[in-house]
Design a protein around this nucleic acid. Structure first.
Length: 112
DNA sequence: ACTTTGACTATAA
DNA sequence: GTTATAGCCAAAG
């Protein structure tokens, strides 16, 4: 596939994240071929604020399951509210059982 | 064109 | 367990 914008790939993958699931910047970056482009994914999210169709950025956390980007939402606790709204348990700005909810595009989208 | 920065990750101490 | 440092690459100033 040939996307003009690296961001568009990110948006696409993030949108594919099922409800009630989570993913990490690194996993998405690796799926796109950018093994070390995790920062680029987060950077893309910064542009995804008003992106159409909307990107569930609240489902994308860092490798530690920490809500690193919560400060970029309208309100810092909005991200947590969205996660909790999908059945995710958040404790101290971190996702509980992150590994359980973790959704890896490299695996889920590679089963063919 | 150069410098700074950033929603990251991995390794080391 | 934490804090520090380096590697990473693209967009914005």
């Amino acid at each position: 596939m040939q996307q003009k914008d690296f961001f568009k790939d990110v948006y696409e993958v993030v949108r594919l994240i099922p409800r009630g699931r989570l993913s990490s910047y690194g996993a998405i970056a690796r799926y796109l071929g950018a093994t070390s482009g995790a920062r680029m994914v987060g950077y893309a999210m910064n542009s995804a604020h008003q992106q159409i169709p909307p990107v569930p950025a609240h489902r994308v956390l860092n490798r530690n399951g920490l809500l690193t980007g919560k400060h970029h939402f309208g309100s810092p606790n909005q991200m947590q509210l969205l996660l909790e709204s999908e059945g995710i348990v958040v404790e101290n700005d971190s996702v509980k059982d992150f590994a359980t909810y973790f959704w890896d595009p490299n695996v889920e989208l590679s089963i063919e």
